[in-house]
Design a protein around this nucleic acid. Structure first.
Lengths: 342, 342
DNA sequence: AAGTACACGGCATACGTATTCAGAGAGAAG
DNA sequence: CTTCTCTCTGAATACGTATGCCGTGTACTT
């Protein structure tokens, strides 16, 4: 086996022309049954596979999607938000089912988006994944739209926003978390997570919480909100800040599980027990949530559905079908950290 | 911007021929300085990017690597072993640094390895990642070698094994875990993990443990070894089996962190405290290890170095340079679950 | 028996780039 | 002024596949 067999080789062996081989193997109906069988047999025997480069070049389509993670720089650059990592499995799987290959790449938000997979014809479309400073990359999204690039984004969905966005219902998620805490008798609920417009998803979770509180005639207190990006370290530090403010609180709603886990660590150090002194609820339901101590009550995003929805939305777009943004439901997973009887 | 600019378009605008454009943009020295500048300017202005398909077709090389995960079927098919997930970050990053794109795909061990990326010219080489029944896929590795496919594998490294394997020094890892437990005064050390030849990596960890015990004049007891694949559930069940055997033990060395976490859960249910009654050490140092309760002492595999080594080894192979298998050192991370003073 | 329809498959070509080969022009050496 | 060398660029072509168009031969219609 020196050189890879081509459709010409098969054609010669089968006594037909190269185009016929192509037609036969792609399942065109204009090739007679016996001819096709013969060609298929020879192809199998030669271990023939279509050269994807040639095929893509000819068809101007690659059967490949690209997945782009982007994140705020983290101390360890190879760390990825576990929630997105979970989604990765689902995305890969869906791609495989739909017959697409998947290219993946990590981008620092700050770097230039050099890699434009679709532009260089390595992919038919792009999936964007990552929290991150929204303002920073809105311009880039608009550039993508202008270039006619097919892409979908996971995140916060808003009127007049460039491109198609699939996201979880952050407002509802924040609300059920809040309602649950209130039902446990908590009144002074702190929120850890960026509430500025730079992270609209986190902000929306906060708004959901506030809505729940207002529904129970509780006025949200600005002093109980601390900015934090979605890392454990940020959660730890935010909690220390919160404690230092000396405003009483009996519950924490963290904008992500990582933040929540960091918060629990800080609370422990300061001698506040979870859930007795402070009930804690996270967001995402990453694998580590159930391993935390105490096991973390959290708002679950359905990453399987999410991955599937993203891929399918992108495929629709590639086929020039219209796609509407989708909002997936969030679901409360009750464990021990919120103090509810289970 | 309707249609993607080609090197012909640029040639026309620059008043040169297409080959000159190609030469200029690829940095050939045979293009005069002013001509090159002019071409580069026009290319930038037109937002030109090389068509990777055409380029790959012409050059017969793709500048792309493929990453293949394969695993034993798990209940949730989109779950991935966290250790490999950590490695993913490092692999992606290294690929990016080396100027390669990365294709990724998950394979059930049981399925046919349909996707042969290199065969279909979508990748220049393949990285194989996953524990799994070694016997099952040895034949496939041999097929890959025979086809002349470039690939590297993470795992157990053995004489006369098909292909290049990079792995961690499992024997040493098992040994330092054993020595540490013995130094804590533990004598009856159980091992959770498959010790058959189907999972040579896990087996080697066990052999390391045995060597440590024998070094301390302790005879390993077969009754204290229970087979388990690397999932939490398997660890949980294996521990229940172990307890049911009614043979006293004061330490567990688990072949992976997931197994260890499952074991801790089982021990807790049976009223044995960790580390007082039973010291536990895991393997891998997955992110969840430090979050476990108590935080898990474990043998760390350096996933950053691992990913880098894998990619570089593969690139060497692609360039037809000789590559020798490598064995990376393992390192003990002491946390609370082993009962050592920290 | 002649004409029509259709099934099958070949010919030519396009996709966009990279490389080999050869040739043009300029300058230098004689 | 000729010849040689060297630098730069263009013409031609290959990479392997997919598809539009057209020709051939068979079956079927009337």
């Amino acid at each position: 086996m020196q050189t890879k067999p081509t459709s010409f080789d098969i054609a010669q062996l089968a006594g037909v022309s190269q185009p016929t081989v192509s037609r036969a193997l792609r399942g065109s109906t204009t090739v007679s049954e016996p001819t096709r069988k013969r060609i298929e047999a020879i192809a199998r025997q030669l271990n023939y596979t279509v050269d994807k480069n040639a095929s893509s070049l000819r068809r101007q389509t690659t059967n490949t999607l690209a997945l782009l993670f982007f994140e705020d720089p983290t101390p360890d650059e190879s760390m990825i938000n576990p929630f997105f990592l979970s989604m990765l499995g689902s995305i890969t799987r869906t791609c495989a089912l739909r017959g697409y290959d998947l290219l993946i790449s990590f981008q620092q938000m700050s770097s230039n988006w050099h890699v434009d997979f679709e532009d260089s014809r390595k992919a038919d479309g792009i999936i964007l994944l990552g929290y991150g400073d929204y303002e920073l990359y809105r311009a880039r999204l608009e550039a993508l739209v202008e270039q006619g690039t097919h892409f979908v984004r996971w995140g916060f969905s808003e009127e007049g926003q460039p491109g198609t966005t699939i996201g979880c219902d952050n407002f509802q998620g924040g609300m059920i978390a809040g309602q649950h805490l209130i039902a446990q008798g908590r009144r002074n609920i702190a929120f850890l997570g960026d509430a500025t417009s730079r992270y609209p998803e986190l902000r929306t979770r906060y708004e959901g919480l506030c809505a729940a509180m207002e529904g129970a005639k509780i006025t949200p207190d600005q002093a109980l909100q601390v900015d934090a990006i979605t890392t454990e370290q940020a959660g730890f530090e935010a909690t220390q800040q919160l404690i230092a403010r000396n405003v009483p609180f009996d519950a924490i709603f963290a904008a992500s599980d990582l933040i929540a886990i960091g918060a629990i660590r800080a609370l422990e150090i300061h001698g506040r027990s979870v859930p007795e002194d402070v009930a804690v609820i996270g967001f995402d339901d990453i694998p580590a949530a159930s391993l935390a101590h105490p096991p973390l009550t959290t708002v679950q995003q359905d990453y399987r559905l999410a991955g599937e929805t993203l891929v399918d939305a992108l495929l629709c777009q590639i086929r020039n079908q219209s796609v509407s943004p989708a909002m997936l439901p969030a679901k409360l997973i009750v464990r021990k950290s919120c103090g509810a009887a289970q």
